[in-house]
Design a protein around this nucleic acid. Structure first.
Lengths: 335, 335
DNA sequence: TTGAAAGCGCTAACAG
DNA sequence: CTGTTAGCGCTTTCAA
């Protein structure tokens, strides 16, 4: 048999569907006796409201869509976790969309989210292309950005100040007595996460009277393997350096591996500072000193903002969350 | 204005909604001319079908629910990634539910998934309690299990043979010449992932004429910190050992950290083999030798099975996927 | 080749 | 306090 509907409950309890609906929503307008009857029927039939039917009428699905570049990365999944947490608390489900950083896929997801009538969407990490924006606009639902932002469109976001954080990391190395500091930066075509980090590094160097040397910066894509490659290149071809700032923990750890393989002691002979503070950064040995981004919290904040918007708040303001420098054991104090 | 509906398209193209529906679904029964008109109207209005309304009628939402204990863990998110991938390919969205291994939350999620009329659910890692089963049954949709199984209920699953894999890991250590082998096993109350791994270890020892010593097994909960604690205890109180088998990579890495902190060289003075092969296990230094579980693939398989079931296949068979021993650099060949 | 109409399960006036 | 009814946007007979 088919699952029981509100009609079945009505019949079983001898009242109308309207009344059933009323007691289900705790509205007023029925006697205590009917309430009992209805509740009992609900119980007996094992009735569950149909959220689809409800959504059709309310124009609310209590569902949000979240786009992430790669769920299986620690980075994305920590944010996702935060998002899911508050969404669930506030009665929203999350449809998770793994874009693979692929435009086609992203577009398709947006399309589907639209058709599924999600109440809002959270877009994480990556640049919000015009095409995306167009679709998003078309779906007429609130959007919030996490770990990215749009210069072109006024969309609320949650993000740390990369430039400042990079500056902080570099300056820390300088304070520790390092004067020859290399950097492995992320995708350089990435205006959001790539460029500002490089700038922060450069600025810190200059502010402290240290020369910025193009030959001391390697380029990666934030991932481990590119961190390794960049480190090899740096070690082979750059002017010698005693410290390295990597624009992501993955790259830092990759670089660390290369250094260790070459017999360099960390931090005695090579200091390394990362960026992100992924969960496993404290697991490696020696534990990685890094810039902490409060990923789960950023997810939670985004979720909260989005839901406020959904519930009718006109405006929420973007949030620059503060990073934190976590000292562990990969940076040495120079004599 | 409200988003355009099929009615608007009908009006704009001067035909009935039935006809619009027909061309949208590529059914037969309209002239080429009408088709053009309709398509043009769709285009002009920017019409998007409403999947909610569609779902109400079809009793199909093209959505599945996935329950994971902790998205932010590498373990869960790798499986999730696999699931999402094929789901998306086959036109399904995934609602992700983070249970936190909490019964109440799980129950609530199941409830919501039921109300949202998902077409199926995938349950990962953890024991399928009777209460869960009851709700699942009530929602009348197919279910598949990943990285767990149910002895009580006949539900298809995808899983590696833990006992065998543990045996394999232990035997490998023995082949490498180790005779004093400790183990850190997972939650011992976990009949699915805990006990069998311990048994495999024990069996391997016995089959090779080695004594199984209760004092050489530590207990953890699969997580890093417990791995650390267990290792400390083992190092302090167990009879000396040259090799360790940890029932999860996290614990292996935790144990590795402790060994390293105490000045033990890995693998020269302490060999370690893990279990899972999480992405970061190759990132640590030295890279971890471990039992590989094809997590993303298991996710993909589960997704495929579930969708087959949804599309009407009567039965699918459970799948014991094979593990693989990945030799990296944490196990030493004894002289 | 087309359209009218019933109805999916529910909510929300409106009328008693 | 309670029931009737008109949709929500769509699919699908059934007739034309």
């Amino acid at each position: 048999m088919n699952p029981p509907t509100i009609k079945d409950v009505a019949k079983a309890s001898g009242v109308s569907v309207a009344t059933v609906s009323r007691v289900l929503h705790n509205l007023s307008g029925y006697s205590d006796k009917t309430k009992q009857k209805v509740l009992q029927a609900v119980e007996e039939l094992g009735y569950q409201p149909n959220a689809i039917a409800r959504g059709l009428i309310n124009k609310r699905t209590q569902t949000i869509g979240v786009l992430v570049p790669d769920v299986s990365s620690s980075f994305s999944s920590e944010i996702l976790h935060g998002i899911e947490q508050v969404a669930n608390d506030k009665g929203f489900s999350v449809i998770m969309c793994n874009t693979d950083e692929d435009g086609k896929r992203t577009l398709k997801y947006l399309q589907v989210l639209g058709e599924k009538q999600v109440d809002g969407v959270i877009f994480t990490s990556g640049s919000l292309e015009d095409e995306y924006y167009k679709l998003l606009k078309q779906m007429r639902v609130p959007v919030v950005l996490v770990n990215t932002l749009s210069h072109k469109h006024a969309i609320p976001y949650v993000k740390v100040d990369d430039r400042q954080a990079s500056y902080h990391a570099t300056e820390y190395l300088i304070r520790k007595g390092h004067r020859d500091i290399a950097m492995i930066c992320g995708t350089i075509t990435d205006a959001i996460a790539g460029v500002p980090r490089l700038e922060g590094y450069r600025q810190a160097l200059e502010d402290h009277g240290l020369e910025y040397m193009e030959s001391r910066v390697g380029y990666g894509n934030f991932r481990l393997d590119m961190g390794r490659e960049a480190m090899k290149l740096l070690l082979d071809e750059a002017p010698p350096f005693t410290a390295l700032f990597a624009a992501s923990d993955e790259m830092a750890i990759g670089a660390m591996g290369v250094a260790l393989e070459r017999g360099l002691k960390i931090p005695e002979e090579m200091s390394i500072i990362g960026y992100d503070d992924l969960v496993f950064s404290r697991m490696v040995f020696p534990p990685l000193t890094t810039i902490h981004q409060p990923l789960p919290m950023m997810g939670r904040m985004a979720s909260e903002m989005l839901i406020q918007l959904i519930e009718g708040t006109d405006q929420v303001s973007s949030s620059i969350v503060s990073h934190q420098l976590i000292e562990r054991q990969t940076v040495r104090q120079m004599p």
